[in-house]
Design a protein around this nucleic acid. Structure first.
Lengths: 209, 209
DNA sequence: TCAGACATGTAAGTCGTTACATGATTCA
DNA sequence: TGAATCATGTAACGACTTACATGTCTGA
């Protein structure tokens, strides 16, 4: 059986909002989904062609914003079916492949300072991530109060009588990232305390003997 | 510049414990690192050959446990250098590619029930994950009290005067997974409450008009 | 004797990034 | 005029999984 082809489904999902070009899709992903999804042009354009070949989308020439020709893709009825089938299918659990944890585990037989240095680096990274998240959250909460998508997104997202559902879901996706990041930071504190406590115990044990 | 080749480094890290066969490495990963790392045989065996070709490991024939011939790999001095260089290098932040969040985001313009169903599925998965984690944790905490690795690991891990440092690091890696899973579950609760609250507000607004 | 663990590997295919190639338009 | 943005694509490479192929040894 063929694999999931999540890129295909992600694209179909966005096209179900409104017709877009590959470039638009990339921008939309960068603005809205950056915290949990990414697609490169190297994936995007070939996949769009494939979608047309399969009859899940149609391409037509369009003028961008008075600029050169661009390819605007629309989802077909069949495309909508594929998309909504995918939504119904069971989602595979988040795969776990974490380079930091691998390194950390492998410092187990090295000096403790190595393990701690790794944690501190991780901590710095996650703090930065949290700041970025918090920024986005502020913008979104404001938008939620005004019940419409942020300016940068509104052109791309297409028309909707009431965006407040999409907005809430958007905000919750962001919250997910924030909670994860907070949990990672809390773990860093916990882990550093454990390692320091162990060090102290060892030092005092050595002094005793 | 060439990519990271984390598989290579992971293998070197494990070989730095003691000489092992490809099969041993696979087992060790399955038992100890399963929660944050994985390698398939399709990666493992070719990488081991590559390692020998590069002079980072040596291969010698060995008799398993009275069984057929097996290839036992040992790390070389150069291999140790490559490994410890990798430990020093900056770790790339955890990449974010979460199929659940993608789906969830894309239900924003569907019915709310879709979004909720997705969360509930996620919740079930994470609950199961948490149970598996808790089991492993119990075993590890017991081992930590006895200051030695669990039986299943002790043969593979090789000799060490005192494993309590490795053990603590092992436990902390596990704790990381547990904290993440707990955070995901907490988010599920939070998100479900938000969606329900919004539904109630809508319903009462409709009744008003 | 036969299932299951031990043990090593290859081939095909998917998935995904990066670098490259091209060229138009806009605006400072 | 030249940088930035708009816009579309390909080629090469690397990472990773799955299925396949092969064979041994142990113990119920």
């Amino acid at each position: 059986m063929p694999k999931k082809q999540k890129t295909r489904c992600a694209i179909l999902g966005l096209l179900s909002w409104q017709p877009m070009s590959g470039y638009d899709i990339k921008k939309l992903i960068q603005m809205g989904l950056q915290h949990f999804w990414n697609e490169s042009y190297g994936q995007l354009y070939p996949t769009l062609n494939q979608l047309v070949a399969e009859g899940l989308a149609t391409r037509k020439e369009g003028a961008g914003q008075g600029r050169r020709k661009r390819h605007v893709y629309s989802i077909t009825a069949q495309g909508r079916r594929v998309f909504s089938d995918w939504l119904q299918e069971p989602t595979e659990p988040v795969p776990v492949r974490n380079e930091f944890l691998l390194k950390f585990f492998l410092t187990g037989r090295q000096e403790e300072s190595q393990s701690m240095r790794l944690i501190e680096e991780y901590q710095r990274q996650e703090k930065e991530r949290l700041e970025a998240f918090t920024m986005s959250e502020q913008i979104l909460r404001k938008a939620l109060r005004q019940r419409s998508l942020p300016d940068e997104l509104i052109d791309l997202a297409g028309p909707a009588e009431d965006d407040s559902n999409q907005l809430l879901v958007f905000l919750l996706s962001l919250t997910h990232g924030i909670r994860m990041t907070e949990a990672r930071l809390a773990w860093c504190g916990e882990a550093l305390r454990s390692l320091r406590a162990r060090k102290r115990r060892q030092t005092s044990a050595k002094r005793q003997s």
